[in-house]
C-alpha cells in the first residue's frame, strides 16, 4: 500500500527534541527518528513505551545464576568431588563461598550476552542486513524525523516542520512497508 511520509532533517539534537514535542503536540504521528547517536530523553518525547529489555536482562541473569549453581554442583560435588584446601567436598552449601565468583560471573555473562542478542533480534539486526535509514547523513551529523502524512494536509505539515527548524524537508511516497 502506498503511503506518504515526510522526512525532515535537523542538525542539532536540542532542536530535534523541541521539534518532536511540537509535532506530537499537533497530533501528527512520528514514524521514526534516525540519529547518529543516542539522544537522551528522545524515547520519552516520542511517546515510545518503556523498554522491557531490563526485565529480560533480569531473567537472563537468573538463568545464568541457575546454570552456575547446577554446573558447579555437578563438576565439584557430584561428578568428581575435589578436595581443595581441605574444604568438605560432598556438600554444595558448605563450599558455596568458593563458587560465588563463578555464580557472579555467569550471572553477568548470561545477562549481558543474551540481552545484546535480544536487542539485536528485537531491532531486526543481523549480519549483512541492509541498512534501514533513509538518508546516509543520519550516520554522520544529521537527524531525520519521519512523519506519517496520512490524510493530513501536506503543505500545512511541511510548513510546521519548517517552523521547528528543519534544514531540509522531503515528501516521500513509500511503495511498500518494509517494517
Amino acid at each position: 500500500m502506498a503511503s506518504k511520509v515526510i522526512h525532515a532533517l535537523y542538525t542539532d539534537d536540542d532542536v530535534l527534541m523541541d521539534a518532536v514535542k511540537k509535532v506530537r503536540a499537533e497530533h501528527y504521528h512520528i514514524e521514526e527518528v534516525f540519529c547518529p547517536f543516542p539522544v537522551h530523553g528522545l524515547d520519552k518525547a516520542m511517546g515510545i513505551p518503556h523498554t522491557r529489555l531490563a526485565i529480560t536482562s533480569f531473567m537472563y541473569g537468573c538463568v545464568g545464576l541457575t546454570v552456575a549453581i547446577l554446573m558447579m554442583n555437578y563438576i565439584m560435588i557430584e561428578d568428581w568431588p575435589q578436595d581443595i584446601g581441605g574444604k568438605p567436598s560432598f556438600s554444595y552449601i558448605e563450599n558455596m563461598p568458593a563458587f560465588v565468583p563463578i555464580m557472579f560471573e555467569l550471572t553477568v555473562f548470561f545477562a549481558a550476552h543474551l540481552m545484546v542478542i535480544t536487542f539485536y533480534m528485537r531491532s531486526r539486526l543481523w549480519p549483512f542486513k541492509k541498512a534501514e535509514n533513509p538518508d546516509v547523513r543520519t550516520t554522520d551529523d544529521h537527524f531525520l524525523m519521519e512523519v506519517d502524512a496520512g490524510n493530513h494536509d501536506v503543505n500545512k505539515l511541511t510548513s510546521l516542520l519548517g517552523d521547528t527548524g528543519a534544514v531540509e524537508i522531503k515528501v516521500i511516497d513509500k511503495e511498500e512497508d518494509n517494517h
Partner: peptide
C-alpha cells in the same frame, strides 16, 4: 564484605 570473608574462609 565477601572479598574479606572468602579469602579468610578459604585459607582457613
Amino acid at each position: 564484605w565477601f572479598s574479606q570473608f572468602m579469602l579468610i574462609w578459604y585459607s582457613n
